[in-house]
């Protein structure tokens, strides 16, 4: 494996016969839309690109616990509190499925974790926005988890086996996340005038950031083409985004609320949903650390890691002691 990392992938490097053979087998597997498994030969660029994508995805799940965990103690009822705890626990689980899958590419958990804690890894920009009101729990579930699902369903068929399998599990669990969010908004929308306003305000704030979750426009997404050629990505960012807009444009009617988008319409000719231009300067600023909550999210993650150190050390010490006792008896 380490050999692959040193020799594979570079276009200028002369391929060894083993690499040429591996490349041919890899190309054939991709061509017949089959799956690549951890011990298969794979181009170094494929390994690197997937490691980046999957670890960013894992980090997003882990950081994504924060805006919602923030509301657990203030949930309006025991039922809502239980639901929110279950959802946040799911996000932790999703992060762990994805870290495990990423590790099969040869980067271990500690390294991935260090990358996040050191601020060298990216995560979804959406989690750098604050969750100000209870209605935000609704908007996050409906719009943020909704956008995540739209993105993730095609990833269930990603060419890298462990990634696809992790996504299948995640997608199954995500649908409850979106529904509980929609239900929160529906209840608020049918509540008092103040509750209705709060729901609309949450939608207004999360609409554009949720649409940005699909990533830059196709023209500005240099990695998309290669990712699609490798059968990792199945649809372009813009295509997934307009499809999602079409879904929520219908769903918002059930809420009796509106999407903050004066340009929103269905174009009969192209069969595409048209939405407003998104503020990509803002997107880039938030990704690079300039969002409202970047510093807070990272500080909280580091704090949680440090505060958990004694638990990890105690568990390791206990395991070591048990092992020693077993060896003495033997």
């Amino acid at each position: 494996m380490a050999v692959h990392q040193e020799t594979g992938g570079h276009l200028t490097a002369v391929q060894s016969p083993e690499d040429a053979e591996g490349q041919a087998r890899f190309d054939a597997i991709i061509a017949e839309d089959s799956r690549i498994e951890p011990r298969d030969w794979m181009p170094e660029a494929y390994r690197k690109s997937l490691t980046r994508q999957m670890s960013q995805h894992a980090h997003s799940e882990i950081i994504g616990m924060q805006p919602e965990a923030n509301w657990i103690t203030r949930a309006p009822s025991l039922k809502r509190k239980s639901i929110l705890i279950a959802k946040v626990q799911d996000e932790a689980g999703h992060g762990l499925y994805l870290y495990s899958a990423t590790e099969t590419l040869g980067t271990d958990r500690d390294t991935l974790n260090d990358q996040l804690l050191a601020g060298r890894a990216k995560y979804s920009s959406i989690f750098n926005y604050p969750a100000r009101t209870w209605a935000d729990m609704g908007a996050i579930g409906w719009l943020v988890d909704g956008a995540a699902i739209a993105n993730q369903v095609p990833l269930c068929r990603a060419s890298y086996g462990p990634y696809g399998r992790a996504m299948v599990r995640i997608c199954k669990e995500e649908s409850f996340h979106q529904r509980q969010g929609f239900e929160i908004l529906l209840e608020l929308a049918n509540g008092t005038e103040a509750q209705r306003k709060m729901a609309q305000d949450a939608i207004n704030r999360f609409y554009a950031p949720a649409l940005m979750m699909f990533g830059p426009s196709d023209n500005d997404s240099p990695n998309s083409k290669q990712s699609m050629a490798w059968n990792v990505k199945r649809f372009s960012n813009d295509d997934l985004r307009q499809r999602f807009v079409g879904m929520i444009a219908e769903q918002v009617k059930v809420l009796g609320l509106t999407l903050p988008d004066p340009e929103l319409r269905y174009d009969e000719e192209t069969g595409q949903w048209i939405h407003m231009e998104l503020d990509w300067d803002e997107f880039n600023r938030v990704i690079k650390g300039g969002g409202p909550c970047n510093a807070q999210r990272m500080a909280r993650r580091r704090e949680a890691h440090e505060e958990g150190a004694w638990v990890r050390e105690a568990a390791a010490a206990y395991a070591r002691k048990q092992q020693e006792q077993k060896e003495q008896v033997a």
Partner: peptide
């Protein structure tokens, strides 16, 4: 079902319960 990290077998079973059998 998948994999996980744990310091020993007992913790691995406990973590597996939380990670892979929440439903």
């Amino acid at each position: 079902a998948g994999s996980l990290h744990a310091p020993d077998a007992e913790m691995a079973v406990r973590n597996a319960r939380d990670l892979y059998t929440r439903r």
